[in-house]
Design a protein around this nucleic acid. Sequence first.
DNA 1: GGACGCTCTTAAAGCGCTTTAACTTCGAGT
DNA 2: ACTCGAAGTTAAAGCGCTTTAAGAGCGTCC
Lengths: 330, 330
Amino acid sequence: MDQRPRLDDVAARVGVSTASVSLVLRGAPGPSAETRRRVLEAAAELGYRADRTASMLARRRRHLLGVMLDIRSAFHAELVEEIQAEADRIGYEVVLSTLTRHRDENRAVETLLDFRCEALLLLGPDAADRRLAALAAQVPVVSIGRRVAVGDVDVVRSADHVGVSQALDHLIGFGHRRIAFVDGGRGVVAAARRRGYRDGMRRAGLADEIRIVPGDHTEEGGIRAGRLLTAAHDRPSAVVASNDRCAVGLMDAFLRAGLDVPGQISVIGYDDSTLARLAHIDLTTVNQDPAAQARHAVLAAVQRLDEGREQRMEVVLNPRLIVRGSTAGA
Amino acid sequence: MDQRPRLDDVAARVGVSTASVSLVLRGAPGPSAETRRRVLEAAAELGYRADRTASMLARRRRHLLGVMLDIRSAFHAELVEEIQAEADRIGYEVVLSTLTRHRDENRAVETLLDFRCEALLLLGPDAADRRLAALAAQVPVVSIGRRVAVGDVDVVRSADHVGVSQALDHLIGFGHRRIAFVDGGRGVVAAARRRGYRDGMRRAGLADEIRIVPGDHTEEGGIRAGRLLTAAHDRPSAVVASNDRCAVGLMDAFLRAGLDVPGQISVIGYDDSTLARLAHIDLTTVNQDPAAQARHAVLAAVQRLDEGREQRMEVVLNPRLIVRGSTAGA
DNA sequence: GGACGCTCTTAAAGCGCTTTAACTTCGAGT
DNA sequence: ACTCGAAGTTAAAGCGCTTTAAGAGCGTCC
């Protein structure tokens, strides 16, 4: 519980200057093989580890990426895992700042800024485009999963309308025509998916069948939508949900109403969350490759920081449909 | 994107020393009302925010709590929310470090240590008692949800065996006798719940009915256990699961096998996760009050840091059964 | 034998902030 | 008039590290 060892302590023990120790510990050229050996030995004996806050201050560079996320989101969890991995690989540290019931996006971002993160990765930010643009004027910002129309914000997202189109094509290929859509609520992402549904149906000549049921991004929302659809006299033969949790709620409602999935009604989700992969859920869904998104996002930040990129960049990945057991012929 | 303003910049603009600015900005006594006003004005105009890393270094104190968690766990998410809130309230900052597939507990803790967190809050750590004890010799450590037998580690947990007992009592009160238990895998917590089940059954004179089915902490595990139980000729009339996700898997398996819950079989979970509260799941379960655990944990850390507590402390909270719709008479 | 390079090492100047002891002022007290 | 104390301000010394320019030591070459 005493003071942890400092650079001085290691230096004193070896009998060299702190400069030498610092160089050795960071693998910088200069020190002789013999010095290296002795320093490393002493450092190990003392259990020395550099104080990151001090290093950050002394270096011009901080090598810190700030990530804003919603800790309750399983999708964000997947992204964070990959962001961490990628950051590790290229020698950046990651600071996590989560939204909570008592902590909004502003607070979360401020925390990140106070730590002087060199760049911000925002997972599905909800702030207005202008606010994001203003932020981006201070520090490189990359928005993941959410399009930003104005300002110098980098964007990494998947083409939501394409994903929904693929889902529709799959169902139409099975002969479905009455295909409903369960909405994901307000928010830029949900809007894109909704648009994808509308456009897709029109293109397929099914404009008359367009039917959008309100929903959100919880199982609860799915349940409610499911009840609505079950009760209707003109029940659809297939439903596309704006996200997996909603789809799971839907399936549950159908199951309880005695409707067989996919026998009597097909269901498609969106996100390919771990949920969807569970054997008993076995949901056909759209995968947006979080690993790839994470990689691109980290890359975007690093390009700004280390390679002097100045121009806005937008990476749009193509999602792909994962066909599982919740869809079948009409 | 240029340099962010520093203390000097604010000082220069007002025409006072950096010392004065620093004092004003932290609300320390000294500066006159007039100086305060001018400094605050200038700071606002420049959009100045202190560099936390620099402040930390300069202060003797860091006011930083390190939290190790598994970002995929919904229960950890709830704890983190409350920890954040509590830390905010008492003026501590929180650094999150998550386990991932590529990042084990050691790595996660090292990151925290590198940031020189003043205390560590570990959510359900898996490391051996000795390792935790060794850690605690360097820095105050509080283990949340997991008992630690040796060393100077503070512990905040709920009485797992009590929770399971309550579940059993509830079922026994309903006339159930054939009550099975779905295990939560290896790990200290799962072991405590398993023991609670064994003891509870014995106390109720149901030693002969003890039946433990293997499981883990995923829906998958619950499904497998459910299949096992459904297939058996001596099917139990009630099942207690070591955790909610497992319980949900169980219920799903029963539902698919045409078994009515709670009509033909009752199910109880553990954790009272958001999952359990969903209308369609409506699971009777055991609540361990994450908010209270979070508060006690933060408090424990702060007592060590600010109030000089030296002695080990263990807070054991009593969980309480939340009766919902998944249980009924035998 | 002096100039020149080389390799290795280190003194010292920060990084952006906090904090303390010392220093001004200035009005009150005697 | 002079001392004191209070109130306000600031110079300067860090916090633990990095980095750079300069220095030390030594073998080489003409």
